[in-house]
Design a protein around this nucleic acid. Structure first.
Lengths: 156, 156
DNA sequence: TCTAAATATTTTAAGCTTGAAATTTTAGGG
DNA sequence: CCCTAAAATTTCAAGCTTAAAATATTTAGA
């Protein structure tokens, strides 16, 4: 007895490769535009925005190591970015009582205000860039991404 | 008379922002794994793979400027990468007859062989990373990405 | 022919990113 | 108490990336 599925002209691995390239192109296009907006309209960068965004979610601050694992970047990376934000008065480091190795990074009031402004514009940019997606499209796309993300959870 | 659409607890812009973050997470997760495989198993990097991949598609070679616009990166960027590939005997620059400003970058035989090996592994890695997507999922996801990409075409 | 603008590429400075090494501090076993 | 391992962070070297400046060449117009 034959297989239930029709023979495909293209193996599934090729179709997956093709959709991967399309995924990459979509994300890179949006990311390039966001970086351009951040630079030209706000004189900042995406890594800085990402760090500020993480710190905004944790008003009590985040240990440097928690910040880097949250953002999935190296420890050394966040060191430099927090250094710069601190020089500009947007963030600060606070000693952790009871552990002199650790420090917690926090946004200053100025940093919070700057982030609120950036975040609103960021949402607007994304809303425009994803104009082609209806509410239904968003849900369907989200479900497909979940099946990719599920696999990533497993491997750690 | 009331609007046909039910009031949503969450505005569409928030839903789009959420799916954008998920898109980013999916792509970054896959990309990190590909970079790790390229580094640990083949001693190379994604930018080098991308350049080799572009050159492999154009056996007669690509002008440096065509290469950078094809890859959507800066001119200066490909200069450095082609320099390194050339030092290693994987690529070479050929003068363009009739225009002494321009040069065409090409893969050497060694470069083509190296790329074939990388490309096969790359397809395998993607096939595994996207294991969660059936053929039908791939097509549906692809359609959604098209509606994002369509918009990117417009703005140039 | 001369020359200004356009084109192709490389160079440069600044910032991002990583993995690995170095530093400081803490924790635990003897 | 001592000493080794683990943990938190920073420093470092190397590579990627960009925008802008510099260089070289070609094109087109006066």
């Amino acid at each position: 007895m034959k297989s239930a599925q029709a023979p495909s002209a293209e193996p599934l691995s090729k179709a997956r490769l093709r959709v991967w390239l399309k995924l990459l192109k979509s994300v890179n296009g949006i990311e390039t535009e966001i970086r351009r907006n951040l630079r030209e309209e706000h004189g900042t960068t995406l890594p800085r925005f990402d760090v500020m965004s993480a710190l905004a979610r944790f008003p009590d601050g985040l240990k440097m190591s928690d910040l880097s694992s949250y953002l999935k970047v190296s420890n050394g990376n966040v060191t430099g970015i927090v250094d710069k934000l601190t020089e500009e008065g947007l963030a600060l480091r606070v000693a952790v009582p009871g552990d002199r190795r650790a420090q917690v990074a926090r946004l200053t009031a100025k940093g919070r205000a700057a982030f609120e402004d950036l975040a609103q514009h960021h949402e607007d940019w994304i809303n425009t860039l994803l104009e082609g997606l209806s509410a239904g499209n968003v849900d369907a796309l989200s479900a497909h991404l979940d099946s990719i993300l599920d696999r990533q959870m497993e491997e750690d």
